Simulated scan of single mutants.
Amino acid sequence: MSRSEQKRRVKDVEKLVAELVKLPAQVLAQVDDLEEVRDALLKTAQLEGSVRQRQIKYLTKRIALLPLEPLYDLVGQYLGRELVEKKQQHLLEFYRDALIDEALAKEQDVLESGGEWGEGWSSKTIAELQEAMPETDPLTLARLAYLFTRTRNPRYSREIFRYLKSVQELRQRNL
């Protein structure tokens, strides 16, 4: 994972903490994982300005060690789905970029070895995606990544993202 990606993820957790600070005490009491930082969250809600920002950064470091999914669900339940949707979008972008990077590396390996490479290539990223979202069609993703590497047309990159987004929406409707 690149340093930029690590920074983006920390910023996402920081936004989560900023939203958690806005929640009332009764809602925070429902989450068992927050026992050690619950009081600090409540005190931070009363702070203003740079003191509040500094405290949010401190809480970010502590909360980053906890499981984040229940916290995102809690914030989504009480303050809207925007934060959760943005996190899901970043995850899909990460998968798309990883798939394209893997396809480019595979193409380079094949060119150096002088072998043949086609649309049905195997990919670790696609296997990961199938674990996370079993509804994905590996052939479609492999074909789109292959087409991107052959033409460098950004249309195929956007198509990969659209496909992943549609699979994710299908999963959410079926839950």
Results as ranks from 00 to 15, higher is better:
M1H: 14
S2T: 13
S2M: 06
S4C: 04
E5S: 14
Q6E: 06
V10W: 12
V10I: 15
V10E: 12
V13M: 01
E14D: 00
L16I: 02
A18M: 02
E19M: 15
E19D: 14
L20C: 04
L23A: 02
L23Q: 03
P24V: 07
A25C: 03
A25N: 04
A25L: 07
V27Y: 10
V27D: 09
L28M: 04
A29M: 14
A29L: 13
E35D: 03
E36L: 06
V37I: 07
V37M: 02
A40Q: 09
A40E: 12
L42K: 14
K43L: 14
T44W: 01
Q46R: 15
Q46C: 08
E48Q: 15
Q53V: 03
Q55Y: 02
K57W: 11
K57M: 12
K57Y: 10
K61Q: 06
I63E: 00
P67Q: 09
P67W: 03
P70A: 02
L71R: 09
L74W: 02
L74G: 01
V75A: 11
G76T: 01
L79S: 10
E82N: 09
E82A: 13
E82T: 12
E82M: 06
E85I: 05
K86G: 03
Q88E: 13
Q89H: 11
L91Y: 09
E93R: 12
E93Q: 15
F94C: 07
F94K: 13
F94M: 10
Y95I: 02
D97M: 05
A98R: 15
L99Q: 10
I100R: 05
D101R: 14
A103V: 10
K106E: 08
E107D: 12
Q108F: 04
Q108G: 03
D109P: 00
E112A: 13
E112D: 14
S113V: 08
G115T: 08
G115P: 11
E116A: 10
W117F: 01
W117K: 02
E119S: 10
E119V: 11
S123Q: 08
T125I: 13
I126D: 07
Q130G: 06
E131K: 11
E131P: 00
A132E: 05
M133N: 01
E135R: 06
L139N: 04
L141T: 11
A142Y: 13
R143C: 10
L144V: 07
A145S: 15
L147I: 01
L147G: 02
T149Q: 09
R150F: 12
T151A: 02
R152N: 11
P154K: 14
R155T: 10
S157I: 09
S157R: 15
R158K: 10
I160Y: 06
R162F: 06
Y163H: 03
Y163C: 03
K165Y: 05
S166L: 05
V167I: 12
Q168Y: 04
E169P: 04
E169D: 11
E169I: 04
E169S: 07
L170M: 11
L170A: 09
Q172W: 13
R173M: 12
R173W: 07
N174V: 01
N174T: 01
N174Y: 00
L175R: 05
